[in-house]
Simulated assay, not measured.
Amino acid sequence: MNSQTPFAQALLNPELACPGGLKTWNGSDPEVRFAVYRNNVTVSLIDALADTFPIVQELVGVEFFRAMARVFVQASPPRSRIMAYYGGSFADFVESFPPAMSVPYLADVARLEMGRVMACHAADVPPVPPEALQVALSDPQGLMSLRLLLHPSVHVIASRFAVFSLWAAHQGALCISSVDLAAAQTALVFRNELDVDTVELPAGAGQFVKSLQLGETLAGAASTASSGDHEFDLVNTIAMLIRLQLITDITTVRQPS
């Protein structure tokens, strides 16, 4: 949707007048018909956000969520016809939305939910064959200069709050009363064949994965992870990535001669 055209601007901004030049097939008032169409479009976009962020809606209630989503829709109309990705900036909006600041973990829950949507629609890339992994990881001299490419569905959400436990509680896996909201957690989202999975990671492992996604070598990613988490376990983290079949390519960074 091109938000720069007068029609699109008026469509999502109720303060703007009906665009001029509109006609109806039966001669009825175009302003009335446009108002109905405007409302239907807005409601449809709010419904799309509710489908993407069901836990966010549960946490704040339907009335608050839909009011917040309406403000977002008016400020951030779709830029693509692919509605599955609509709401990519919703978490950032929630984080800066004054009425939602009393629920400080809400934006990270939105990031987790959007990560699951993105993981669902990510490209399907096969993992590195086990024998290739074995050869690459068994070379002590070249090990730390390796660069691991991870599956496109991988998303890491590092939060100051118990974002994974909140998500798990809303899946029925935990009792919500047992969740310590102030406990920092890191969640790993990825797709396993056709199913999207979400697991909790140690903070260092989450930083390691994010560093790999930024193109760092094994050595660089491990150093970054260790500096932020002294309990970071490189061997167990690599084993986890192998077990979940999230490594899709291995390259070796040439060292300067």
Rank of each mutant, 00 (worst) to 15 (best):
M1W: 01
S3L: 04
T5S: 15
F7S: 09
A8R: 00
A10W: 01
A10D: 03
A10R: 00
L16W: 07
A17S: 15
P19T: 06
L22Y: 06
L22T: 01
K23A: 13
K23F: 01
P30K: 02
A35G: 15
V36D: 04
Y37M: 11
R38K: 07
N39K: 13
N40F: 03
V41N: 04
T42N: 10
D47Y: 00
D47P: 01
D47N: 14
D47F: 00
A48Q: 11
T52D: 05
Q57R: 14
E58T: 08
V60R: 03
V60I: 15
V62T: 13
E63K: 04
F64C: 05
F65L: 03
A67C: 06
M68T: 15
A69Y: 07
A69Q: 04
R70A: 15
V73P: 10
Q74Y: 00
A75Y: 02
P77N: 05
P77H: 01
S80G: 07
S80K: 04
R81I: 04
I82M: 11
Y85R: 01
G87A: 11
F90R: 03
D92E: 15
F93V: 03
F93Q: 06
V94D: 13
S96N: 14
P98K: 03
P99E: 08
P104T: 11
L106G: 10
A107E: 11
M114S: 09
G115K: 03
G115F: 05
V117T: 13
V117K: 00
A119L: 13
A122S: 15
A122D: 13
D124Q: 10
V125D: 01
P127L: 10
P127E: 09
V128S: 08
V128C: 13
P129M: 05
P130V: 05
L133S: 12
L133E: 09
Q134Y: 01
D139S: 13
L143E: 02
R147N: 02
L148R: 03
L150C: 05
H151I: 08
P152M: 12
P152V: 11
V154T: 13
I157P: 07
S165G: 14
A168S: 14
A168K: 09
A169C: 07
A169Y: 00
H170E: 13
Q171E: 14
L174T: 01
L174Q: 08
I176N: 00
S177K: 01
S178L: 05
V179N: 10
L181P: 00
A182I: 08
A182D: 12
A182W: 02
A184Q: 09
T186C: 14
T186Y: 08
L188Q: 07
L188C: 14
V189A: 07
L194T: 10
V196N: 11
L201C: 07
L201Q: 12
P202G: 04
P202C: 06
A203G: 06
K210I: 00
L212I: 07
G215M: 10
T217A: 12
A219S: 14
A219T: 00
G220Y: 06
G220H: 03
A222S: 15
S223F: 09
S223V: 12
A225P: 14
S226H: 06
D229F: 02
V235M: 10
N236L: 12
N236C: 10
A239Y: 02
M240D: 04
R243T: 12
L244T: 02
L244K: 05
S257I: 01
